[in-house]
Design a protein around this nucleic acid. Structure first.
Lengths: 325, 325
DNA sequence: ATCTGTGCAAAATGTTTGCACCACA
DNA sequence: TGTGGTGCAAACATTTTGCACAGAT
């Protein structure tokens, strides 16, 4: 069970941290770490203290507080501010950097991740020549339940898993657009060599699509509940249509009138765009499942680039622009 | 002097607020409001308390605290979190909603405004069906001075004025692009009627350009120091090239080969795009000088739309698509 | 005269520290 | 066996509150 493996990994990290700092692995520190890790969410020192006391009545508030400081320092925890002027902590290990939407009337919070926001942060920080340390974006509001005066049921999800889910969804959609794109090109191609090349590419994309669908099944099988989690990766799906144009868009661009050369170049620039996009995307995240998905996906796009480049060389002669990534 | 007028307006707002709440206008409240308003920046309760004590030794901490709560409630102040776990306040009246970059090694903060961030916030909030209340974006880092271990000189600027400066800069640049755009179209036009129409449009844009330059002069004359303030409105200048393409971009799009009809439609869609863009932009801001600049600008673009529409009707017959905004 | 406002001090809230014992490594 | 760890209580830091008196309309 990977959840247990992750637990063990985190304990090991903490142990290593303690060792490096010549600190001791004590019963209290273990209990506190366990309690902290097993509770997804945003624990305040007091909440954690209460939880710890259920396991061990003798542990004091100060110890909890001191241990959380150590955990933050070791990189396993992150202190967050939910606007209630108390220290809150959330697990950080293999979780992407994200932000919070906080209900001001109930304790509900929603986490979300936005690469656009991360990018904006980078822009702003470099523009003012700051060396970035950390950044938070908090949105306060009244949640749907509170607006309707409904009782709120509170659920926590593993953000790494939810991120993986969202990343897979995006990859799947892109792959589908890709299949469609090549089928359109094939249908429009007058040159039979061109048609074959595009059909091959479509088949290639379909193969990847099947693989991704397999990963999706595995993810859902492992954790059905993850499907109920709210969207975590805040993503502009219009972006996808910019990578692989929708059928309508293709028609607008008069794909059917393209020469073989033009069609190949179009395909090449699409794949390059997609590769760059997902590579840039993957770079934004910590070591997470979602990052791995985007990375793998970017690599596949790169292979597509090379395939098409080969087709170009074969069908049009080797006088074509070299690959850029 | 407009600074005094604004001061008076704010006092009036506070007076009205107190009246509505059946509270009294006392000497203490006046002293506190004055102190708060005359100091740009991010005062903590204690800092404000110390300042207030210079005018009136008898005023207590609690009074300052209570008054700041009232000011926040009245909408004149906003409580901000600079990560030092104390309440800080900044003036809110006629100032755009903005965010902070905070140096973790010295007390320097930089304010910036980003419509993209505001938009992202709106997207996220509506996506999760929250009713938005407020939002903050804080970036912590080490400022340039601290990176170089230089002593920091601290300067405060009136963010409304700086915003106006940045808005004017954007409007000026757009207007210049517009002039260039129409001159290119005129140069390329084969039809003399079309050439005249585009030259007229270019002249129109130049007239607006002169007006904007006048406003710029006035702004700088009023407050020279404002030129030294760091960029406040964080704006992606690439956006401008999307509104009015650069000369290189125009060449790529083969402007010189466009028919009169195509050229007119291109112009119309550019103007519509610019109008929508600046209108949407203006909507994002409180009642500020910057908002007014964008609003006025959006209106001018709308007038351009109508002008071009008329040209279309005149030159191509009235069978053209109706204006949309 | 009747309120609300104020200053002061005390309380409340949350976090950190000093210190005498405790217990890992 | 000694260094660092812990619990407890006290200290700290900051904001909020209770209350008797002051002062405005």
């Amino acid at each position: 069970m990977p959840a247990n493996r992750e637990l063990a990994e985190q304990k090991e990290i903490f142990a290593a941290y303690l060792k490096k700092k010549k600190l001791k692995i004590t019963r209290q520190r273990q209990v506190i770490l366990d309690s902290f890790l097993k509770t997804e969410g945003h624990l305040s020192t007091e909440e954690l203290y209460n939880q710890v006391r259920q396991k061990d009545r003798t542990i004091g508030y100060a110890t909890v507080s001191r241990t959380m400081k150590a955990l933050t320092d070791s990189g396993l925890a992150r202190e967050i501010d939910l606007g209630d002027s108390r220290s809150r902590f959330e697990p950080l290990y293999k979780r992407p950097h994200h932000h919070h939407i906080i209900c001001v009337e109930c304790p509900k919070t929603i986490e979300f991740l936005s690469p656009e926001l991360e990018q904006l942060q980078e822009q702003v920080v470099s523009h003012y020549r700051f060396r970035p340390v950390r950044h938070h974006f908090q949105v306060f509001g009244i949640c749907e339940d509170c607006q309707k005066h409904r009782p709120a049921r509170h659920e926590d999800f593993d953000s790494d898993l939810v991120f993986a889910r969202d990343a897979l969804r995006i990859a799947l959609q892109t792959e589908k657009n890709g299949v469609n794109f090549y089928q359109s090109l094939a249908k429009a191609a007058t040159d039979p060599r061109g048609r074959n090349a595009f059909l091959e590419m479509a088949a290639e994309e379909e193969k990847h699509l099947r693989e991704l669908e397999g990963e999706w099944e595995a993810l859902v099988k492992r954790n059905k509940r993850v499907l109920k989690a709210p969207v975590f990766l805040h993503f502009d799906y219009n972006e996808l249509n910019r990578l692989f144009p929708s059928p309508e868009e293709l028609q607008k661009r008069h794909v059917e009138q393209l020469s073989l050369e033009e069609a190949l170049h179009l395909a090449l620039s699409m794949e390059q765009g997609a590769h760059r996009f997902f590579k840039r995307y993957a770079e934004k995240f910590n070591d997470t499942r979602g990052k791995a998905i985007f990375q793998k996906f970017a690599e596949e796009e790169l292979e597509h680039c090379e395939l098409i480049q080969k087709e170009c060389d074969r069908l049009l002669g080797p006088s074509n622009p070299p690959l850029q990534h």
